[in-house]
Write a protein that binds this DNA or RNA. Structure first.
Lengths: 221, 221, 221, 221
DNA sequence: CATGAATGAGTATTCATTCAT
DNA sequence: GATGAATGAATACTCATTCAT
């Protein structure tokens, strides 16, 4: 109606070209939206990111976001729940020693934490969330932590690691890994695979007991 | 009827009773203000904290804040610069081995990081700052990191620690320590002194080389 | 996950089951839609009622409404024009006295005013309408008012009622009746028929002249 | 800071010149604000009135409104509570007959209902209010109604009016009076005093019993 | 020094309306 | 005819900041 309708968005670039024809368009668009939001929140901060910013990056209009989520808070909540879900999904080999379990778990953990979702979980944190949602995410984080604590206890029991205070040691280990998003850049010289190995090597050494074939033990011999 | 003009401040409790007569009132008030701001930023988040919140906690009026700082951004900047200053101030024993230097440095680092200022540096981060100020703080953080890298290099040179990539190892070590504000509560069963020891023990073990008298080595023998 | 794409409408209940096969489906659907809109506007208020609300009640989708009306404003306009039309349609016995005409007219008026359309006319009012449409409805209302004024004049002329200022008395009479939608509930103990009688009795007494068989006259005798 | 600060408001005309120096400025400004809001709500409708509209009329900036009220809803609530308060404040002569009490009560009622506050109470209604506030106003309105019902009962008891159903008659009477805001204009040929007399005459006639010295009776004689 | 009052700039959210399918 | 998706326009509300006193 109005003549001012100048900048009609080009449909082709909308949704960053990530959407194909098909049935699950709705779910796929949600995913693209979530990842874009996660990345932007991490880069600029939650409050510095306006919904317009996100819409602009997707080449859609701001109100369109509301077809997929009912509030900015809900977007963040879901980003963080996806992140937590990914981490909790790590299949755990129930035959392995505690030490082996931890290594495997951390492998996945590192991969997830440097991903958009995990990075947003760490860098944005839960403070911007509504109290109700904050509790939800905190529960999820607690679950992850309990997972590690149990592996530590298992390791202590099966002697694959030496006795320690699992609560505090878990915190140290998570700290070293959670800090990754603050400095690791995938486009540097270090790929995620290598990063994970080095990170795991570092935190595993923090566990007192030596591990077969490990430097520390070899030297000891 | 409205809350707006209710609650006239009681003068006596203003400034949290921390201010005595004397010459340095201005500087002292600034300090109280900074610490209060730092604590509140960490607890609620920078953007969730309004200047009214801070003023309320100090039992002063919002515009009064502007006698001491010229913007919210400046308050955060100064909080973080104080934190960085405290960490950089750590006197380094130039006679000590790299390993010894690192231990001493981390001791101070842990104390500072669980303090209001250090905690705010970590938890609030630099994203809320104006780009110009952000760079300033980032430079400071970089300086701290360089300090550790140099100690690592010194340790490698003097063989008190084994060869490693100082850049990446420094990141891991800082990660484990920087995560402290997210979980450590001084009112729990662990005092700062003990926390520091445990934390240092953990990260030092991450350095490959064994340290004389260390558990790992003793067991190996 | 989101509510957005949930709840696919069941076709069977669409249009509240009021639509049968046949030719006049379009007109009938319009009527159902109008009545639903009228009722909802009255209950929640025009601006509190979204087109989604109306569509939901009809178990159809929001854009479907636009097949029947070209705007929300037009819906309200038509509701009110229907109401006005109903009131103006009252056949007037040109043989009757003014008093008798008024009684008959009010009988119909009460029935219409407690109906969805009349209630919406009164409770929603013309303020939400576009200025152009507002004038239309106001003209209609004016016509209704003129109808009553003429009957009053006729009554004064034929002495069935006593001289009075028809303009102002008409306002009082309409006031008493227009207020009905604000309090009358058909499901209470009073049916519309009785309501009308009582209401008419009240407002007719406001006319000074006594009416044959009326209390006032009986006393006078 | 920005050069775009063109239209700085002239302070003199702000608050419509209604505010003098003195102590109660806050309370006075609130009153001016309330009255302005009430008038505008009645003229344009609650939802058609933006906070900017109100601010513009007062020659103040939109956020300034929030110094005096915490939401648009609260403004409306208070307008309506003022109106109800005024009506309930009518001193009732406990010596008078029911009929006399009613006349006196209605005199005040008419004055209040054509005032900005009363008019807003009637024309805006309670639908725009939050449910919680809606209940508050409805309780107030109910109190006013009960007041009239009691006077009616008293009148029936003291025979100053004839037996009737107080509930329903009260509704009719209020209807005739509540409709006033929809048509009465103070700047027409009828002042409030006369309006009140005529209105009261009309509704009192609706009460069956004749009143000593009343036209109806005199003529009957 | 301190502050009540005022405000510009900014943002999440809502909703009537359009359009491609 | 019907609808899911998309959007322009509009608005209440927040808050850092300024200024007169």
């Amino acid at each position: 109606m109005s003549e001012t309708n100048a900048g009609r968005r080009e449909r082709k670039r909308a949704w960053q070209g990530a959407i194909q024809d098909g049935d699950d368009q709705f779910a796929m668009k949600r995913q693209v939206l979530l990842r874009t939001a996660a990345r932007t929140f991490s880069q600029r901060g939650f409050h510095q990111t306006t919904l317009s910013d996100i819409a602009d990056e997707l080449h859609i209009a701001k109100p369109t976001l509301y077809h997929y989520f009912k509030s900015k808070d809900e977007i963040l909540l879901e980003v963080q729940q996806v992140a937590i879900g990914q981490m909790l999904d790590a299949a755990i080999d129930s035959e392995a020693t505690g030490r082996e379990q931890i290594r495997a778990f951390f492998h996945r953990y590192v991969e997830m934490i440097v991903d958009d979702f995990g990075t947003c979980l760490i860098m944005t944190g839960v403070l911007p969330l509504l109290p109700k949602n904050r509790s939800l995410v905190r529960q999820g984080s607690k679950s992850i932590e309990m997972l590690l604590r149990e592996m530590l206890l298992r390791g202590i029991a099966d002697k694959s690691i030496e006795p320690c205070d699992p609560k505090i040691v878990a915190k140290f280990m998570f700290g070293a890994l959670n800090w990754l998003p603050y400095w690791y850049r995938a486009d540097g010289g270090l790929d995620v695979e290598n990063l994970a190995e080095r990170a795991i090597e570092f935190v595993m050494r923090g566990l007192t007991a030596s591990e077969p074939g490990t430097t520390a033990q070899r030297r000891a011999t």
